[in-house]
């Protein structure tokens, strides 16, 4: 994973609540064996509508998406995070995220930043005309108008993101502890091994 210290740029003031992952990327795009090229299918049902915000030239090249509560609910498809990344989005700011989506975003270095609704309202306003900056070191979102909103993040995820750590490598380093757990359960709970059917 590439380290992420800072995301700066225009933000799409989308604002919708309960955006499900079927809306972010519909099922027909899931028939792929690759992680690439899914940006073309992102928000397809919304982009089919004339005058939609995603095709507004004002927001061309935006790197941030601002949304409402419960972003990324529904299906566990990581294709949603891949599609956002492929369309150039490096961070989503919303009042809350579904648990699975925020995990998927993290694994792909896509920032899922939770801020209270009043901060979201202000950022939506700024986004219409000006860029927004997310700084991972100070864990803050700022605007050119002196707004500053501090966010929280799971410390483990924060460290992985700013240092670009590979989570599987980190876990592999705990191989002894994993082996110990397996030996304990083999003796205490031998029935845990599935019977070969």
């Amino acid at each position: 994973m590439q380290p992420v210290q800072r995301v700066e740029g225009r933000a799409i003031p989308f604002g919708q609540k309960n955006v499900d992952t079927d809306v972010i990327i519909s099922a027909k795009w899931l028939k792929t064996v690759s992680r690439e090229g899914l940006g073309a299918g992102a928000f397809e049902s919304i982009r089919a509508q004339e005058g939609n915000i995603f095709d507004d030239p004002e927001y061309a090249g935006a790197s941030i998406l601002i949304a409402g509560d419960n972003f990324g609910c529904g299906s566990s498809r990581e294709h949603a995070a891949w599609a956002l990344d492929d369309m150039g989005i490096k961070a989503v700011i919303a009042p809350s995220f579904s648990d699975i989506f925020s995990g998927n975003a993290f694994k792909n270095g896509l920032l899922a930043i939770a801020l209270p609704q009043d901060a979201i309202n202000r950022l939506m306003e700024v986004a219409r005309t000006d860029p927004i900056t997310i700084d991972m070191e100070s864990m803050s979102v700022t605007t050119p108008f002196q707004d500053r909103f501090v966010f929280e993040m799971d410390p483990f995820r924060h460290q992985c993101l700013i240092e670009g750590l590979d989570e599987i490598d980190l876990t592999m380093a705990k191989a002894d502890a994993i082996k110990r757990h397996e030996m304990n359960s083999d003796s205490a709970q031998p029935w845990l091994k599935p019977v070969a059917a």
Binding site: S76, R77, E78, A81, I100, G103, N104, K107, N108, F156, E167, I168, L170, T171, M172, K174, I178, E182
Partner: peptide
Amino acid sequence: GIGTSEVEHVLATQTLQ
């Protein structure tokens, strides 16, 4: 439910963080 990166993590390590 988990995403694909977590599927890979479980396949490789049989654990999740």
